[in-house]
Amino acid sequence: MVALGLTLIYGVLNQINFAHADFVTVGAFTAFFTATRFATKVLGLPDTGAYLLSMFAALGAGALLGLAVNAAVFAPLRDRGDELRPLIATIGVSVLLENAQLALFGPIPYQFDSPFARETLRIGRIFFSAQSVLVVAVSAAAIAALYGFMRFTFLGKALRAVAQDRETAGLMGINPNLLIALTIVIASALAGMAGALLGPVLVLSPFAGASVIVKAFAIVIIGGFGNMQGTILAGILVGVIEAFTVQYLGSGLIDLVVFAMLLLMLVLRPTGLIAERKEENV
């Protein structure tokens, strides 16, 4: 889901948001504090209700951050037609967000208890935590919703039109800036929600994002920049390969294997799994 947000932004804007993963941690922290401090203490909601509420809070936090980054970074830099500048600026935002969180929350990881993490489900002889089932289910739903949105609604079509050719789309009465802002907000909201979902699974610390982002990049590249089907496929593929790596090589080597795969992919098929060939435009 994080990778999907990245690829969405890339597909429409041709820009990479390095701070994207930090939206995930911000989302996770928002969810954490909403669930543990606000919902249960102030509103007196039961655990499950608090967690669900926290997910929406995280969604909102992600959307707000996306809005802010778009207004502060992407929008002013968009017209200069430079690929490096926005990328570097988002690295700056990323470093800023990480360390701001560090200053606020400290380096000690938080234990984010979700009511679902405590329960386990059994299918045959295999046990799952309810949380991981929830992660998969919500991700699948979000992916399906996003896919449907891009494919079938007017806005989705307009977005893809902007991705294809910004100027022409502008001439057709589509406001590209508004749509780009919308894309970033959607992608960032997804990231925030991903944070709420992953918070209880990962260790919640300000730097959790960094470990997520590099993997998300790997998935995006393996799937092909801006290509949604490819990204989903690559996400599944990387998940499977990670599982096998843990099984046979040990968990320390996960990043190594994923990135070796990434480099291999860049050598063999730089356009991704589902290739869209683009000739050098002269």
Binding site: G92, L96, N99
Partner: peptide, 18 residues
Amino acid sequence: FGELRLMIYGIALTLVVL
């Protein structure tokens, strides 16, 4: 100021690029 060190890098990087 502790953690501010890297925050300075982040802020400086973003502001300069902008």
